[in-house]
Design a protein around this nucleic acid. Sequence first.
RNA 1: GCCGGGAUGGCGGAACGGUAGACGCAGGGGACUUAAAAUCCCCCAGGCUCAGGCCUGUGUGGGUUCGAAUCCCACUCCCGGCACCA
Length: 819
Amino acid sequence: MEERPSPSYSPSQVEAKWQRIWEERGANSFSTEELRGSRSPYFNLMMFPYPSAEGLHVGNIYAFTGADIHGRFQRLQGHDVFEPIGFDAFGIHSENFALKHGTHPMDLIPANVANFTRQLRRIGGMFDWDHSVDTTAPDYYRWTQWIFLKLFEAGLAERKKAPVNWCTSCKTVLANEQVEDGRCERCDATVEQRVIAQWFFRISDYSQRLLDNLDHIDWSESTRKAQANWIGRSEGARLVFPVAGSDDVIEVFTTRPDTIFGATYMVLAPEHPLVERITASSHREEVRAYVDRVAAMDVVSRQKTAGEKKTGVFTGGYCVNPATGTEIPIWIADYVLAGYGTGAIMAVPGHDERDFEFANEFGLPVVRVVAGPGEDADTPLEEAYTDHDAGRMVNSGRFDGMSVAEGKAAITADLAERGRGEKQVNYQLRDWCISRQRYWGPPIPIVYCPDPECGAVPVPERDLPVILPRVEDFKPDDDGVSPLARVESWYSVDCPACGAAARRETDVSDTFLDSSWYFLRYPSVGDDAIAFDPGITRRWLPVDSYIGGNEHAVLHLMYARFITMALHDIGLLDFEEPFTRFRAHGIIVKDGRKMSKTRGNVVTPDPVIEEFGADTFRLYLMFLGPFTEGGDYRDDGIRGPLGFLRRLWDTVLRAADNDADPDPRLEGQLHRTIEQVTRQIADLQYNTCISGMMEYLNAVRAGGRRPARAEIEPVVLMVAPFAPHIAEELWERLGHEGGVFGRARWPEYDAEKARRRIVKLAVQVNGKVRGTIEGPSEMSREDAEALAREQENVARFLQNGSVRRVIYVPGRLINLVVG
RNA sequence: GCCGGGAUGGCGGAACGGUAGACGCAGGGGACUUAAAAUCCCCCAGGCUCAGGCCUGUGUGGGUUCGAAUCCCACUCCCGGCACCA
């Protein structure tokens, strides 16, 4: 038969055509009725981007493509897949950009959003553009403010003075999470501490639940570990030390109550409230100097001192060790943190490295109260002995001889009986400060009334949104006052409670609040009467699949869990975990290094898509490496996937009118490929799905034979999640109507057809491969051994001994063990 | 220091404890072409070789096993996160 050359593959034409068709059909958009009535809902979520002026970067496209493939696969499985995308457009980032380039954020953001939208459409994601959000739109942040009010009503929002991280350059408060190595994560300036009244969400109340639920959600292991770590649960005891010659007591938290007999001194954090009262007048000057010196340090230098020599000062005061009854000196040192536990510790230099170091520095006594194997009560301590498991208690009165675990329980119980302590669990998780002294965020909906009867009054729901006014001069100044505090016409309002002249809260809220609930909003977008419709929410949430970067392991993902839990407790949601399944994707690097402007190794996606098409680009990104691990981008590597799509195109066109039965051997491989791809695509192992399809296509094309349509049709379906445009085009050219993502279903594999009938076995002698044999897959051990022995090379290695043992793994190998 | 994740050809990466290097890139050779592009075919871990094979090889050193990239123990180095958290 004479072969006609097939018309060549033109990505741009194919992609423009199908994007238009999807758009016309509303293929990816749900109506409200469809959302209400879906019988097989699947909420496929990805982390919405910040719409930067630079446009989508490769990392965005990588993440969205991986998530979109998952969504498209679920669609082919027959689910109604809701795949929204939106814009996380508030925050310091765009404000800084706006300041630098003189563009107002209110002008900048819409332009960026338009550009992002264009790019997102171009990559062929299955996005529901009727349900997009922009966190800076009043009809979105109105509900962000509403959530604040709900938490406020529930007592989960509170205003308190607290030391906060103050960026000396951004002139704003930073969350702990935004401080890296004592520097601002954005501008790298040093960070110092300031005390300001802030709004906090009481996330720490939820520490234990946030920790416990981690066992019940299907999340990436690394993400769960990071969250557990961040919550930082530790079990121990709160112990009470009476201050000598006073009614005051000092409480400490310790995880080692068993070592209390070795507590030879006490240390308070410089910020501890009792410092003043405990300090003897003879020591006042020294103590004050030390406390002032620490207070003046910025966070960088304070952290730097962590690795260096310990500093501290004696107060002249004493307290009583409740176990030994002896008086021990009270010191002040900055190695004790004010923000954790009680801000005071009992120092046990024998069994804590930091205390040991401090005791050596200042000549304080070191007492051994735990003896390790081969040690006794008098063995000198060269360093702190911190082992929990092997030691026995010594120098501890009637507790001597107990293990550490026994001692913890016994001493805690003993002190509790005497009113000197109790078991306690502590968490490192701190309350979430949501106040920002910035401009580009949703105003916090609170009004301060001068009448103390009113105080901080929530803005009534009917008055939401509190609109962020357009302010031309939004540059923060260094007095720590929000830019909105300069706009009197905005902040001057009547008290909602009593009508007196009052003043709005002029801080805006943290961007993480916007992103802590956006997934709740998506399916209810367009409904201006409610934040999230109960019926629709019940049907679509929690989210079935969430894919995003692990850089959000402890911030966004923790806050979203907390907000969901709080809304559940308030009675607004009937679930308490927002994301049933979360998978962290990897990072794309270039030449083994992170892409960055300074390094000059940033890949700009637009020209690549222009040249090769979105399908090839998607396929290439997924082919780079395992999706959960990322990969190394190389410019010329894209030729592989391009060639694959061209060969697929050519093969399908040549096979379209060949209704012959599939070649029996190819059919086996086809079904094995379907089995493999089906299993691996569900597991996000996209790179091996692609290589599996390449391998099969190579087999179909081998020898220049004419392919049959039945041999290639299933490949079109399997490639569809990766390269949806070309798949639609080829599907149509194969004579199907209604579209791949309309009526088609993922191919089924037939285990019987997938089974190999003739197998090739490796023949080993003593574990080393000496040949191969071929035979029916159900070949008996005896037959296999006989075939193996016939091999000349095998026989040679059997000469110097007799066969002691034969290991036969059907379908794999036969191993002759010669002794 | 602690918690994750890694280390396999020139490169990205494959390998239910069972023939290491699938798939692809780069490279080399060839076909077609006036030429180029495109396409197609062959080679491609290292060493030895009587050309049949043999030896060595998955960061290092041990171990378990008929058989280890894979499991166990001890290390080295790299990447990410946390870090004076009592």
